[in-house]
Design a protein around this nucleic acid. Structure first.
Length: 199
DNA sequence: ACAAGGATTCACT
DNA sequence: GTGAATCCTTGTA
């Protein structure tokens, strides 16, 4: 049966923990993800409507949305939610469970723990590039997303990383205690934690 | 046509 | 903990 990724984006994000994304010889078990809510979410790339870059987010779930970040990293997302909602889940970190030699070669100098610890590193370990944007992940293609065999023990959640807007929406999810989860660093552009909430 | 800034990482200290 | 590297997408003129 097909994997249904069309539900609420935060719930889909949780369900992706423990899933495996494979690209050729390299497979990564996801341990950290972040949800983005499309038009209703100011931090989302899709917040201001359809553009050539984010077009795939507006399509049906199960496709890859990737983008080039900070001039040097490719970040990977799974499009989810019903067709038209533009929500997506950023894949922030994982553990390499297959093809570790290839992953090491792609990553250069890195400990095994750091091979896919962080969204840019995960993209590099899996050789994600713009050529793969829009790829469907749920059939037998070169990029393949498979559901968790066992649900993770404990899921933690907290504020999102790197975004200035809506940073405190607790839509980052990770497997509690897993060593392959990236270090949390609050965006310098996000409001201070003790800042008054202004609207 | 041009300027601005970013879902970050790495090498230092 | 701090700062530099780096280029694509977008908004505005």
């Amino acid at each position: 049966m097909a994997w249904d990724l069309s539900g609420r984006v935060d719930l889909v994000a949780r369900s992706l923990l423990g899933a495996t994304l494979r690209h050729g010889p390299v497979a990564v078990r996801l341990v950290e993800v972040e949800a983005y809510g499309g038009l209703a979410d100011p931090a989302s790339h899709a917040a201001r409507g359809r553009t050539p870059r984010n077009l795939v987010m507006f399509g049906p779930p199960g496709h890859l949305y990737c983008y080039f970040s900070y001039g040097m990293h490719w970040n990977a997302n799974v499009v989810c939610g019903p067709d038209g909602t533009a929500s997506g889940v950023l894949l922030r970190a994982g553990r390499v469970v297959d093809g570790i030699e290839v992953a090491r070669a792609r990553r250069g100098s890195s400990t095994d723990r750091d091979l896919a610890r962080g969204p840019g590193r995960l993209g590099q370990a899996l050789a994600i590039t713009g050529a793969l944007k829009g790829t469907y992940l749920l059939d037998g293609g070169p990029l393949r997303l498979t559901p968790p065999e066992h649900p993770p023990d404990r899921i933690a959640s907290g504020p999102r990383v790197g975004v200035a807007l809506e940073a405190d929406r607790p839509w980052r999810f990770w497997i509690d205690g897993d060593r392959h989860v990236s270090a949390y660093r609050r965006s310098p552009r996000a409001p201070a934690l003790d800042a008054p909430i202004v609207r």
